[in-house]
Nucleic acid binder design. Structure first.
Length: 695
DNA sequence: GTTGGGAGAATTTTT
DNA sequence: TTCTCCCAAC
């Protein structure tokens, strides 16, 4: 029985979902059922008889891919099995694993995450003989390189364009970048950008691979197309060239990734690059009440150069005006957030119907603290993901060594965990064993042990013996055994010495083991561990928690994209924070920040709160006046109501009554709390998301 | 070469 | 507050 799409979709959505073969561009404003339409297009294709294996669905987050696949799967009673869906990075990864040799890589090439990239670049710069202060920071060099790569521009040209911002000659920068690229190649490793670059190169240069995938994918569908960069749009074009069935969905208003090379012009140029494109516009908003849309529309109207588009509300019930809340400073803001959360809970909303959104992770600190103290359950999407945490990466490196897929980096990482072994010793050994010891060979292990300082030999031999047995045990037990020995031999002690929360970290490792056991094999886990993000673990953790009402979510606006909540509390609407001062330095930065504000506002269904502190405190304890965000000032005052919470409501912290902190009548120059963390946070961790309490 | 203490800086967004 | 870097002592 076929799904009755006409009954489920409005006429425009229906047109998009059931459009005949050929290129299709769906311009979908926020909350107009974009994802729904794309899901039902997949459903339509499947029910029309297109085999799932011949459909490719590209998204920007794994979460989006998973959600869409699940929905398609249930709508078609399982027809969607075998459909390829995922981020550009993960799909490229999948293709590269199948054809790695064609590009001179082994199929089990490693993927460097941001942290690996940093250390590799740091090493390159050091090897070139620069002292840390003589050369731009490794992050700067990496981001320049990435900027060029993602725009598909020669690095030299890109450096020339950025000449004004450079502290070093292009020649020296290029030298460091070349060395970095060569080092990756020597290690048979790719970084995130390489997945895109090499994925595209594979399709362009390797006839077999190109034929295979072009033929295979009868339909290519792309979500959030406005966020594609030069590499990604070409990737789509090449894949779709054979059958010409490329369906893309996007909203130029919501392009918020141009800092990493996204080109919203891709979406405007799509019809030119794909002659015969059918264009469908979705403008009926099903999400937000009218006052929220009015505010969002008024804000985005300040941006030049967009496809003209107006969100039309379908929810005609009279909603409350968005409320602008002025507070004295970050702590008062946090207190107000708690009150607003409580008010809305009292009004009948569940915790998971409320979100607190902000520009940057660190903006969440105050609110987090206040919610924790108030006993409100919340979850937070933090900056460092589970798989990026040092102790998790230590274990992953160990696994790489055991599986024999390790490179010098992972061996060095494991060795450095031994007592009395530092960078130099580890490097010496890695060079000696040429990056890859044979864990099964006793002589190889002994040779390695000889190079170790005496203190490290006993712990190493314990681990070495287990490594020797590793290959003879079954998965996943062998992983558990290995990690147990690793912990007992020396790692537990290391955790105790280096960190304040060794037990929590050991728990993370147990969690990691459970995760690994959920995979088909250790190798399968290793091949995509770098691509797993904290968002992926979110749903799993939520399901595991099994909370009926869920939790209030704290999130950056970027990570909130594509999601919606009845109640949205947007904080830190100050000049320099939102819009971010750094972002404003870039060309078009103002526009992009405004799009980000638009995304934030359109997450709200019923109620939108816009908070802005009038004071900002600095890390050193000083403070200064914070200008109201331009995004608030440029909106007609009739579009929101104003509530002022002056210093009086912040009096409690002033007099020390703020929670159990034990107040101090602090002068303005020292607002930082001075108490010790004697309480436990009331929040939960979501997936890899850790509560990093600042004190 | 390693380790630990102390000084100084610091906060954009993500695959 | 934490992170990073630098320097002196083992």
């Amino acid at each position: 029985m076929k799904t009755d799409l006409a009954a489920l979709l409005n006429p425009e959505q229906f047109e998009a979902a059931t459009a005949p073969d050929g290129p299709l561009l769906v311009l979908a404003a926020a909350g107009t059922g974009k994802t729904r339409t794309l899901v039902y297009r997949v459903v339509h294709l499947l029910e029309r008889g297109v085999p799932a294996g011949r459909i490719l669905l590209l998204t920007f987050t794994n979460r989006a891919a998973r959600e869409m696949l699940e929905r398609a799967q249930s709508a078609t009673l399982g027809l969607a099995g075998g459909l390829w869906g995922g981020t550009f990075h993960s799909v490229a990864n999948r293709m590269l694993r199948l054809h790695a040799r064609a590009l001179g890589f082994p199929p089990d090439f490693a993927i460097l995450d941001a942290d690996d990239q940093r250390s590799l670049m740091g090493r390159v710069i050091k090897d070139l003989g620069y002292k840390p202060k003589e050369f731009p920071k490794r992050e700067v060099v990496l981001s320049l390189l990435s900027g060029a790569v993602n725009r598909n521009v020669p690095v030299a040209d890109w450096l020339e364009r950025r000449a004004a911002t450079l502290d070093e000659t292009p020649e020296k920068l290029l030298e460091a970048m070349d060395r970095y690229q060569a080092a990756k190649r020597d290690m048979h490793a790719m970084d995130f950008d390489d997945l895109l670059v090499n994925g595209l190169r594979l399709l362009r240069e390797n006839d077999e691979a190109r034929e295979r995938f072009q033929e295979r994918f009868l339909h290519v569908l792309v979500d959030e197309y406005q966020d594609t960069n030069a590499l990604q749009s070409e990737f789509v074009d090449v894949l779709g060239a054979r059958h010409g069935n490329v369906s893309v969905v996007g909203d130029d208003f919501q392009c918020i990734y141009s800092w990493r090379g996204s080109e919203y012009r891709n979406i405007m140029d799509f019809p030119e690059r794909h002659p015969g494109t059918r264009i469908v516009k979705l403008e009926r908003n099903y999400r937000s009440k009218k006052p929220i849309l009015d505010l969002a529309n008024a804000s985005i109207a300040h941006n030049p150069e967009q496809f003209p588009k107006t969100l039309r509300p379908t929810r005609e019930e009279k909603g409350a005006l968005p409320r602008l809340v002025e507070v004295s400073d970050g702590r008062a803001q946090a207190a107000r957030v708690v009150e607003l959360v409580r008010e809305n809970l009292a009004a009948g909303y569940r915790p998971d119907q409320i979100a607190v959104l902000y520009r940057a992770h660190y903006n969440a600190v105050d609110a987090q603290l206040a919610l924790a103290r108030a006993g409100v359950k919340y979850a937070i999407t933090s900056g460092t993901g589970f798989y990026e945490m040092a102790h998790v990466k230590d274990v992953v490196s160990l696994l790489r060594v055991a599986e024999g897929t390790g490179d010098g980096l992972s061996l060095a990482r494991v060795l450095r965990l031994l007592p009395a072994v530092g960078e130099a010793t580890a490097d010496k050994i890695v060079r000696k064993v040429d990056g890859l010891p044979d864990p099964e060979s006793e002589t190889s292990r002994e040779a390695l042990a000889e190079a170790l300082p005496p203190r490290a030999r006993v712990p190493w031999s314990k681990l070495g013996e287990e490594l020797g047995r590793y290959g003879h045990k079954a998965f996943p037990e062998r992983v558990g055994d290995l990690v147990d020995v690793f912990l007992d031999a020396f790692y537990r002690e290391r955790l105790r010495k280096d960190y304040e929360n060794p037990d929590e970290r050991e728990n993370d490792i147990r969690e990691l083991l459970a995760d690994i056991a959920g995979h088909e094999s250790a190798k399968a886990f290793l091949s995509d561990v770098a691509l797993l993000t904290n968002l992926d673990r979110e749903a799993a953790a939520k399901a595991a928690a099994g909370d009926a009402g869920g939790t209030v979510l704290l999130s950056t606006v970027h990570q909130a994209k594509g999601l919606e909540w009845p109640v949205v509390i947007l904080i830190w609407l100050c000049e320099g924070v939102f819009p971010s001062a750094r972002a404003l330095e870039d060309r078009g930065g103002d526009d992009e920040e405004r799009r980000l504000f638009y995304v934030a506002a359109t997450r709200a269904k019923d109620r939108l709160y816009l908070l802005h502190p009038t004071l900002r405190t600095m890390p050193d304890g000083g403070c200064f006046r914070a200008e109201t965000s331009r995004f608030l000032k440029e909106i007609p005052t009739t579009l929101y109501e104003r509530e002022s919470v002056g210093l009086d409501s912040a009096d409690d912290w002033w007099s020390g009554g703020f929670g159990a902190r034990g107040g101090r009548k602090a002068p303005v120059s020292r607002l930082g709390p001075a108490g010790e963390p004697s309480w436990r946070p009331g929040g939960i961790r979501v997936g890899g998301v850790r509560l990093n309490l600042p004190f």
